[in-house]
Design a protein around this nucleic acid. Structure first.
Lengths: 166, 166
DNA sequence: ATTATAAAGGTCAGTAATGGTCAAAGTCTA
DNA sequence: TAGACTTTGACCATTACTGACCTTTATAAT
């Protein structure tokens, strides 16, 4: 295979920075017993000789929820970026729900159906399901129906995301 | 990497000064039968190798009233800083909260404080507290600030009433 | 008593250390 | 060569930490 040098690194013709970084991070993940890794954005950028925001690009295109990853971070001194690999079953289950929601809001019935499903599958407790249903009920107070649907989608998405983090 | 648990989250052991100091002080509090601890600002600063004002930063960000702590101090000779963990009953918590709502909504900070304390009092689980906090965060999407406060009050009231009923 | 001094603790603005966003420019590929 | 993918950099947001300067209090000196 023909290779060439870019910024000091040997690079195969078919791989760019983003791909190499993806590979590197996934390698680290497989080596991590905890199921997640913590990185420093700037350090990684230095290692790969790129700007820090490139990290965000890689995270945003390769480590998405749809692909089974969860990314959390903290700014400020001693900040970090944490990349977590989700269990496959949870990933599959939720990604369809989340896609639905992303497609611009969700109806009350559909939302309740999802909650019910999750409860039946034992991903959430009875109390948790009731809590979420209560939230849905409160949305009656929102007059604007299209905004209500949007807010409902937003709420359900964030609540589900939160619950799968645990 | 060695980790420890804070409110259900794993944190890297070598986190920042503020986090370590927070841990230390909370540990002392749990070991104190009286429910409060007295410290010397300068001594603590020496122990953690930082400037005294760092103590104030930690107190101001981690030991707030909203989070259920009361900080008193005295200057001058024989001065001290006293940190007290508040022990509020659910009844007190709810009654003051309901008064707040009657007065037209509730602030985000106040709402989070209530949730935090209910968790500490073991009336709600960690997941439930997180779920509610997520709901609060989603309210950012509501433009009208007075309606937002109102909706927040409504949501929190219904959620709490539900959880306490169970 | 009055005053001076030393021994606390408090404030705040500035700096450093992180991470995030977005649009523009560059590169590849069908 | 158009469209998709990649890369960059300017600007933003958040959190942590420091140090100079200020206030309060106890107590020793007068």
């Amino acid at each position: 295979m023909i290779t060439f040098i870019v910024r000091g690194e040997t690079k195969s013709k078919m791989s760019n920075l983003a791909d190499r970084m993806e590979e590197y991070l996934k390698k680290l993940l497989t080596l991590s017993p905890s199921g997640y890794i913590d990185i420093k954005r700037k350090e990684l950028a230095n290692k790969f000789l790129c700007v820090p925001s490139q990290i965000n690009y890689v995270l945003g295109t390769r480590f998405t929820l749809d692909k089974g990853y969860l990314v959390e971070s903290k700014r400020g001194g001693r900040g970090y970026v944490r990349i977590k690999k989700l269990q496959l079953s949870v990933e599959n289950l939720l990604s369809t729900f989340l896609k639905d929601i992303a497609a611009g809001g969700i109806s009350d019935e559909r939302a309740r159906g999802i909650i019910q499903r999750l409860y039946e599958l034992k991903y959430i407790s009875l109390r948790e399901s009731r809590l979420m249903e209560t939230v849905l009920s409160c949305l009656k107070a929102v007059e604007d129906s299209s905004f209500r649907d949007e807010l409902r989608g937003l709420l359900l998405r964030d609540m589900l995301l939160l619950l799968i983090k645990f």
